[in-house]
């Protein structure tokens, strides 16, 4: 069974985000980049399926600038077999990404597509759902457990107030939630082997997809600065402030 896993290059989650002074976007100058954590969970799940003998090949795909190769190499070091980079500097909004991925799915014909539920930079939570619609595949989002048997995938989903279990025929799209697994650290011998694994570079043109902008980024603003705490004289004053100022009780 072939598994396709998507990987997005985002700002490392440990980095403190800076906004450009004109508020036009996030400042990426000299910022450490990494695999989107949800995508890393997707890679880990695919590797576990391979270790269980369920998956036979793991293909990782990323859409982004040329240096997104770094994140693909990391995915290869974690256990993926080969990588595809669709090189695109602009218009990587969800619908465009889903269209490009749909073309890759058409070429690769995977039995299962595993994606992060959302990227930590734009927090859209759209691409997996769009890809499933474009490919006419069943989808299960926010997966906290994935089991595969008899050409069927059973996915436990985290929903408000509980868990929901879905069964779908393959091929299907699954998006990962935070608690699906804990990604491993890349082993040094595998890091060295990753260098020799195949990485194919495509472009939107070679895939026959024209990218058009459906949305426009108007502005970006950092969160409001946290104000200093105050000391209260009594429990009554605290309750009063929580009730009337903070309005939390």
């Amino acid at each position: 069974m072939k598994v396709l896993v998507t990987v997005k290059r985002v700002i490392d989650y440990n980095v403190k985000i800076r906004v450009k002074p004109d508020g036009s976007d996030v400042d990426l100058t000299n910022v450490k980049m990494a695999i989107n954590p949800f995508c890393e969970i997707a890679v880990e799940e695919a590797v576990r399926l391979k270790e269980q003998g369920i998956a036979s090949e793991i293909v990782v795909v990323s859409i982004g600038p040329a240096n997104a190769q770094e994140q693909l190499r990391t995915a290869l070091a974690l256990g993926a077999d080969r990588a595809i980079l669709v090189e695109s500097e602009a218009n990587t909004e969800s619908l465009n990404v889903a269209k490009l991925l749909a073309k890759v799915v058409e070429q690769e014909q995977p039995s299962l597509v595993i994606m992060g539920k959302q990227a930590i930079d734009s927090d859209n939570n759209q691409t997996g759902q769009m890809l499933a619609a474009l490919c006419d595949m069943p989808q299960a989002t926010f997966a906290s457990e994935v089991r595969i048997a008899d050409d069927k995938v059973t996915v436990t989903r985290e929903i408000d107030g509980g868990l929901q279990t879905l069964a779908m025929p393959l091929p299907a799209v699954v998006t990962t939630d935070l608690r699906l697994n804990e990604p491993r650290f890349a082993k040094l011998p595998n890091i060295m082997k990753a260098k020799r694994k195949p990485l194919e570079t495509l472009t939107p043109e070679t895939l026959g997809v024209s990218l058009s902008a459906h949305t426009r980024l108007v502005s970006v603003a950092p969160p409001a600065q946290r104000s200093a705490g105050v000391k209260v004289a009594s429990v009554e004053e605290l309750v009063d402030k929580l009730k009337n100022e903070a309005k939390v009780i």
């Binding site: 990494a34 770094e70 190499r73 990391t74 070091a77 650290f185 890349a186 082993k187 040094l188 890091i191 060295m192 990753a194 260098k195």
Partner: peptide, 10 residues
């Protein structure tokens, strides 16, 4: 280099 970068990340 790529390998050192990934070692550093890991």
């Amino acid at each position: 280099n790529d390998i050192q970068q990934m070692l550093q990340d890991s």
